[in-house]
Write a protein that binds this DNA or RNA. Structure first.
Lengths: 202, 202
DNA sequence: TAAGTCATGTAAAAAGTTACATGATTCT
DNA sequence: AGAATCATGTAACTTTTTACATGACTTA
């Protein structure tokens, strides 16, 4: 069996399956919507588009513009769409998440307690912010379309579902930060109240 | 200001701040506990240990063993511990999460509906499994030590906190998969009952 | 006039994965 | 006898990031 594309290739196909775009515009999508769970720099996008084209999965035509540079608008081909469709339901590898913040918490016992608390609180605020923004995007989408935002065979569903993934993840992170903050705070001020319920129990 | 270590360097320091270990043993920690949020192959660990040693952050001594190959046991130095302590409360970059599964869901609208459902259900089961295992580890830790598992200035706290991070993340992922599955199922069987509450509302 | 956006790329470096090499011992 | 574990490493490759290059037009 053939080797398959690098993941970034499928990410680009996924974007182009929705609408034809230039490399530059794809790179903006990768900073916004799709970028929440897969990122790429332009220096990775341009060569990958060329490879996809060589493989017959996308095709481009040049669009001349008067007031700004010409652009190459890429379209997905039938073969590209078929490749994407095949890939999409193949079991995905385990996340293999790399999270620098959690890595830091792993060694946070070394830190000066007040500094540790400030560190965690700052992170909590940062992610609460992100969560708020994601939630209002989702609410906007829901209001726009009816209640549940798009049928599962439309691109809108993909966007909505991935947005919700982000919301779930952010929420979990915020909750965890809050728990951490509480624990650190209680340790800092040795008032020693009754221990709260174990956080693992549902 | 100096450049700082690659993240894997801090990961190794974080492990060695708890106990002296050989490269081989570190690599096992990286597949178990720490590995849940930062991974490394042995081929990355050995050279990095050498670099850390050249920088004076760790030191090794050879331990001879009768029944198996000699090993180099690495210890963190005072400078190493100081470096780690400084790094630990420096603000961490945004997660920049790469999740292949979510990327697939982004294009799942292209897939055959029943296949899509099976795909999501399989993932849900897989992660529910992981969640169960993490939760029983946490419960075991809690039973072992008293209720809240370790004071925040001990390594045990770091382990416990990161374990909880994993639990929160898995829980969120499972919940999201469950929501996704429900939506796909409802679309597959067009019985068209009343729409459930919007999933964003708290 | 300086900074920013649009637009496409190349080059180099860093980070990470996969494969290979070696060798003793222990388990099946 | 063959496979797995312990133990350390190198080589090659892939993936990702950072920096550099160019140039027209627009906004402050």
């Amino acid at each position: 069996m053939a080797k398959g594309l690098p993941t970034i290739g499928y990410a680009l196909l996924g974007v182009l399956a929705r609408e034809p775009l230039s490399g530059y515009d794809i790179s903006r999508r990768m900073r916004a919507s799709v970028g929440a769970f897969w990122q790429a720099q332009r220096s990775q996008i341009y060569p990958e588009l060329a490879r996809l084209e060589a493989a017959g999965l996308v095709a481009h035509h040049r669009v001349e513009q008067l007031d700004r540079p010409d652009k190459k608008v890429y379209q997905i081909t039938d073969e590209g769409r078929a490749t994407l469709r095949r890939w999409v339901t193949e079991p995905a590898g385990v996340p293999a998440s790399r999270n620098e913040f959690v890595l830091k918490v792993y060694s946070l016992w070394l830190a000066e307690p007040r500094q540790a608390l400030a560190f965690v609180r700052a992170r909590e605020a940062q992610h609460r912010d992100r969560l708020d923004r994601l939630e209002s995007s989702a609410l906007a989408l829901e209001r726009e379309r009816g209640g549940e935002a798009a049928r599962p065979d439309t691109p809108g569903f993909g966007s909505y579902a991935t947005l919700l993934a982000g919301i779930h993840a952010e929420r979990a992170h915020v909750d965890w930060c809050a728990w951490l903050g509480e624990r650190l705070e209680r340790a800092n001020s040795p008032s020693d109240a009754a221990a709260p319920a174990a956080p693992v129990a549902r």
